[in-house]
Simulated scan of single mutants.
Amino acid sequence: MPELQMRVSDDDRECAAQQLQHAFTEGRLTQLELEDRLEIALTAKTYGDLLGLIDDLPVDQPQVDDVVELESKNGHIKRSGDWAVPRRLRVTSKYGGVELDLSEAVVTHPVVDIELDLAYGSAKIILPEGGVANVDAFRSDHGHVSTSDVPGRRRPGALYVVISGRTKYGGLTVRYPRRRWFTQ
């Protein structure tokens, strides 16, 4: 698999280290096994290196290669409510829009990478309150990129979403959920 030869980031190494430490606290690894695996995890270069460290651990733990691809030629791609957000999300749409609402989603990663490849459509990404989005790697040929009041600089403890890719004829909007005012 070519994905196994892809180079890992510091966040990927940290995630694998957290998985190993969690497995140790559950009694699945001895102290010596934890130390050996942590040393390898913190110096890993590829996803293959990391997967070899956790492939004998229970599946209910998030996997290092947590990548989901969503594709549509003509339809609208939408995710909202209680859904599991992967570490990397690749979205491709030729003639449709994309709406990803992370405000009520289950996000177990401190950093989420969203790669958009849109031809004739726009994307809207709704972050949970306090979330941060970096859109520096996203390009719109004939449209706008709007982040409203969403900060772009990483903050400790806040979800950090990195959005990359492009759209030819469309835009990108990143915002927080709309506030609902209830009257009695």
Rank of each mutant, 00 (worst) to 15 (best):
T30H: 10
E104F: 09
L53K: 09
E99H: 10
I125L: 12
V64M: 09
L118G: 02
V162M: 02
L102I: 05
G170C: 06
H144M: 07
V98E: 04
Y176R: 08
Q18P: 00
D141L: 13
K124G: 05
D55Y: 14
T25F: 09
K168R: 13
D136E: 15
F24P: 03
G165P: 01
Q63I: 06
Q21C: 06
D49E: 14
P86K: 09
L32G: 12
Q21Y: 05
Q63S: 14
H144I: 08
S103E: 13
Y47T: 04
L100C: 01
G152F: 04
C15S: 07
D65Q: 11
L32A: 15
V161S: 03
N74Y: 15
T173Q: 11
I54D: 06
V8L: 03
A105M: 11
K78E: 14
A84M: 11
M6W: 05
D36Y: 11
K124T: 14
P58L: 14
V132R: 01
G48H: 13
I54E: 10
Y176K: 08
P110M: 06
Y95T: 08
R179Q: 15
G81F: 13
I126M: 08
D12P: 00
L20W: 02
V161P: 00
G171M: 08
L4C: 02
R179G: 06
T25V: 10
S122I: 06
D49V: 00
H142N: 14
Y160C: 05
G131P: 04
K168H: 13
V91T: 07
Y176D: 03
F138L: 10
R28L: 15
L70R: 12
K45F: 01
I125H: 05
S9R: 02
R180C: 00
G81R: 10
R37V: 00
A17V: 01
E33G: 06
H144S: 14
A84F: 11
R155D: 07
I125T: 04
T183Q: 02
E115M: 07
E39M: 05
A137R: 15
D149I: 06
I114N: 01
Q18M: 05
E71W: 13
K78C: 09
G170T: 02
D66C: 14
V112F: 09
Y160E: 03
T92D: 10
L32I: 09
S72Y: 11
R154D: 10
D82K: 12
D66A: 13
E33V: 05
D10F: 00
G157V: 07
L102P: 01
D60F: 12
V150I: 11
M6Y: 03
G48E: 13
E129C: 04
